[in-house]
Structures are given as C-alpha cells and as structure tokens.
Amino acid sequence: MKISARKKAENRQAILAAAVDLIIENGVRSTSMRAVARQAGVGDATIYNYFPTKEALIQGYYIEAFSQAVDSLHSVEDFEQCNLNERLQILFEAILECFLADREFVNLTFASVFFDPIPAGKSVRAMRNQFMGVVKEQFQAAEESGELTEMMFRELVCHFVWDFFVAVVLYWLRDDSEQFSNTTVFIDRSMDLGYSVIRSGVLDKITGLASFLFKSHILSRVDMFDEHKATFRKLKQEFMDNVEPR
C-alpha cells in the first residue's frame, strides 16, 4: 500500500513525539522500538520504514529540531540587518527554543549522540553539515556585506562554531538559572569575544604568517633545484639510459 507524502510526514512526527515521551519516562535503554511504534499508532514493522534503529530515531529528532530552528529564522523580521554574531546568536537561541519543550529528552540523549567515542556516524555528520551549512551562509553574507574580509579558513572556523554550539547545549543542560538566562549571557559573552577575534583577522594573520614562512622555505628549495637543473637533467638522462633495455 502506498501512502501519501503528507501521511508519511505525519507518521514521522508521531513516531518522534512518541519516542521523546517514552524516553523521558523510561530512559533510552528501556524504550523499545515496539513501544514507540504502538504509542505512535503505527505498525510494529512500519516503524522500521522510518527509522532502522533506535539511534537513527534519536538522531532523527535532532535533524527535525535543527530544521525547525532554521525555518524559524525566516520569521525574524530584521535578520538581514543583523551582523554575524547577532545572527549566530539568534540561530543558537532558536535551536535551544526548539529543544526547550523536550529538555529532559535532550538531556538524556544529547551527549550520547554528539559525544560518541566512536567517530561520528553518517547521520551525525549529516546533522553537522546541515548546521554548518547555515553557519556558512551567515559567514558568506557577512563577507558579501563587507562586514568581514574574506577568510582563508572559513571551513575551519565553521567547525569551531559547531564545537562551540555543542558546548553551549551542554552548558544549557546544566544551567539552573531562571529562564536559563546564564546560557544567554554565556552565548553573548563568548560570541562577542569570538566575533572580535574573527573580525580582527587574527586567524588569517597567523595562518598568513605560517604560509609565508612555508612558502619562502619551499621556494628557496625550488630555487636550489632550479640552479641545479642541468645537473638533475644529466643525472636523469644517465639513469634512464641505464634502465633502458639494450
């Protein structure tokens, strides 16, 4: 039987909601795929069409939450006028707002998904790429508006933002201040610092210096090769002559 795309999306939502409820109630270990399927009102076998494993199910939640948060950015009226650190801050806060209702679930699962000792699986990479894609867009926008000069190591910095984000979520999970305002302050302060480091171009200067040193070394060697080109050619010639079968 073929079901519509809408029904499929609804099922997916129902499964995720059921999983969140059951995991909050019983913990990850004691929650079975079957229990989730029954609570969600889908067949015991059907659930595997959506998520092949419990891990995939949990990761599915995070992918969903990320997408929701990114969608919510469109409703921010003056997002376009915000500078880079404001945009990233809004993104972080939007994700945390999506997590908020399921905070207990996030508390039980976040570390196991993002801090797995086994190198991150495919789906974690997918999530990270999704996140970094959004971050990269913001960097690009900042470069286009002239807010930032073009960066040599944008990729690296984006990775860094991802790591920072994971740290923020872990901080948030342990934050017991009213309305988690300590997290907001934490994001604000550290983002301020990171942003000024990026803007000052320190990173590019350091890497620029390193590559300058590297290049000048290499080039001096290349020059040496150049000077002795004739010798090398002769050596090569002789070698080839020797190898050549008679």
């Binding site: 650190n85 404001e86 945009r87 801050q89 707002e97 309305q179 907001t184 604000d188």
Partner: peptide, 13 residues
C-alpha cells in the same frame, strides 16, 4: 548596548 539577539531573547523569555 546589548545586541539584537539578546534583546530579542529577553522578549521571547
């Protein structure tokens, strides 16, 4: 000043 993101967050809270 506190930036737009923070002001926004306070209102959302």
């Amino acid at each position: 000043p506190m930036n737009r993101a923070v002001a926004r967050k306070v209102l959302v809270n």
